[in-house]
Design a protein around this nucleic acid. Sequence first.
DNA 1: ATACATGCAAACATTTTGCTTTGGC
DNA 2: GCCAAAGCAAAATGTTTGCATGTAT
Lengths: 144, 144
Amino acid sequence: MSGENIRIEDLLKECSSSGLRRTAALEACLRALASAEQPMTLQQIAASSAFDVSCDPATIYRLVSRLEERRIVRRIGFHSRAAHYCLRESHHQDYLICRDCGSVEVLDIACPVEHLEKKIAQESGFSDLEHELEFFGRCANCQD
Amino acid sequence: MSGENIRIEDLLKECSSSGLRRTAALEACLRALASAEQPMTLQQIAASSAFDVSCDPATIYRLVSRLEERRIVRRIGFHSRAAHYCLRESHHQDYLICRDCGSVEVLDIACPVEHLEKKIAQESGFSDLEHELEFFGRCANCQD
DNA sequence: ATACATGCAAACATTTTGCTTTGGC
DNA sequence: GCCAAAGCAAAATGTTTGCATGTAT
C-alpha cells in the first residue's frame, strides 16, 4: 500500500502546484479514484470505502471538475446517465460495457487508434486531441 | 429528394414489420434523423425543420427508444448531458468533438477497430458487439 | 488576512413513468 | 374493437449554481 500512498502523494503535489488546496475531501477523492478498478460516477466516489470523510455531493462535483480541468482525471461517457471518471493513467484504457447490466470491463489492449490521432489533429486543426473508445455488447450473463 | 423518400419508406417498412405503427410522429422522427448530418438530441429532433408535426417530448423519447431497441437508430454518448441519436447507417461513423464549443464533425475514416471487435467478442463472451469511437479536442476556432 | 473550499439549498435539464385518450390495424 | 401510440402531468435523476461559512495558505 505504500506504493499507493506515494502515488496519492504525487497527485496531491500536482494538485497543489496547480493551485488546489490540500483538503481532506480532495485527498479522499484521489484515494477513491486510485483504489478503483473502473471509472466511477460521483456517487460511487462518495460511496467508496476509500472515501473516508463525509462531504456534500456538490463538493465532489466541484472537486472532480477541477481535477478534470487540470487533466488529472479523465471523464468518460459510457451510456449511463451519470458521467464516469478515472485518473488519467499513463496508458490509455478502453472499455467493454454490457448494454443490459451495465457492467464495465477494462480492455487492456494495445489501442489501435493512437497513431490516427496525430493525423486527425493535423487534418482538422484540432489541438489537445484524445479519444474515447468503448465496445458495447451483451455479456455472457445477460444472454438468456 | 426522391431518394430520401425511398429511404424513409424503407425505414417505415422496417418499422412496420417489427411491430411499430405508422404514425405521423414516427414518420417525422425518421425524416428528422435522415435529414441530419450529425447525431441529434431529442430536442434537436423536435426542433428539426423536417419534424413537421407537433408532439410531446415524451412521445419522441418513446419513439426513439423503440427505434433504438430495434437497432434502427444508434445512440451516441458524446459528453453532453443529452444523448445523441442517429440512423444506423450501413457504415459506421466516428466523431470529432470540440471540448469547448461542442461542435461535432463526422470522421469518415476507415475505422481501425472493426477487426478488433470479433476478437474481443470471442475472448469476452459478449455478443452483439459494437463500438463507439470519439475524438475530443479543441477546434481551431476555440484556440485563442 | 485573504482567497479558495465547503455545506446547504435551490434551480435546471433531461429522462422516465403513470394514466387517460386517441387512432392505426 | 383491440392494442399500441400519444398527450399530459408528474416523478426521478443527475448536474449545476448562489450564497454564507469555514479553512488552507
